[in-house]
């Protein structure tokens, strides 16, 4: 059993979460001016580092909130979890 610390619900089993791929992939600033190759890079091409990797995860069966996690791809250890910037609501620690 591998525990992932949801920013809201706290540590929960990995099976409660879904994976959302690489984080911080910006939408093209001028989508209309992109070539097919540039589109393909935006849609399909992702980093595949050996080491810390910033990813999106969602706590599917819990609070259903997306968050950003930095995971070490060599050890599968989660180095940090952070709620998405700009989403309503506090974190677990700062609940009103």
């Amino acid at each position: 059993m591998h525990l992932i610390a949801c920013p809201w619900c706290g540590p929960r089993e990995e099976t409660e979460f879904s994976y959302g791929g690489q984080a911080h992939v910006p939408y093209p600033e001028h989508p209309a001016s992109l070539t097919d190759e540039q589109w393909a890079h935006f849609v399909f091409f992702r980093d595949n580092p050996k080491g810390p990797f910033a990813e999106r995860w969602v706590h599917t069966v819990g609070c259903r909130r997306w968050f950003t996690a930095v995971r070490d791809t060599r050890t599968h250890r989660f180095l940090s979890v952070d709620p998405l910037a700009g989403t309503p609501g506090p974190t677990r620690e700062a609940a009103p």
């Binding site: 619900c9 409660e16 069966v61 819990g62 609070c63």
Partner: peptide, 10 residues
């Protein structure tokens, strides 16, 4: 309270 999995169901 907790939202979690019981068996295969949320």
């Amino acid at each position: 309270c907790a939202q979690t999995l019981l068996g295969q169901a949320a």
